[in-house]
Amino acid sequence: MADPLIAKRFETLVLPHMNSAFNVARWLTHDDQDAQDVVQEAYLRAFRFFGGFRGDDARAWLLSIVRNTFYTWYQQNRGHAPDTLEFEEDMHSLETGTANHDDGPEAMLIRSQSQKRVHQALRGLRLEYREVIVLRELEELSYKEIATIVGIPMGTVMSRLGRGRQQLAALLAPTDQEA
């Protein structure tokens, strides 16, 4: 068994961020079960590397591990995972209004038509934009934290957020006109 003091510290600093970890993993993988696997693996990795954690931002630290774990998983599963929804494809799916992949508990989260559209728009966003949008808008992290997690300069965080918001605005605009 590991040092109980380290285990205790890990429990205090890292475990409370499981909701953030799961939320990010969920928006990256598009799948509840995959997200759970990613989070569990990320926590195991986090525990292993915890001795080297010196900072005070345990959440950002954990999320960078979640993201790395996801990318490992993503590269392994790319062949058969239908996670290559690109901007154009998604425009199409939005126009036709199909949403047959929204089922289970996720569907219960989406209470209104408007919310459903936002949900779908974000879901269809390209990975590199989606991750910064999720980290900024849902997890409310600073540019600095996002830069650390994603491993890009702060300027790139800003430009990706800009592009992401532009694309989301474009995805949401037609439905606004319909409404």
Binding site: A7, L15, M18, F22
Partner: peptide, 28 residues
């Protein structure tokens, strides 16, 4: 866009089952 993202209840919480799983697998 930001306002709609934040209002849309997009944040999903970790299922209780996952919390259990992770705790059970720690440490190591």
């Amino acid at each position: 866009v930001s306002a709609r993202l934040r209002q849309a209840d997009l944040r999903v919480e970790a299922p209780a089952e996952l919390v259990k799983r992770v705790k059970a697998s720690l440490p190591g």
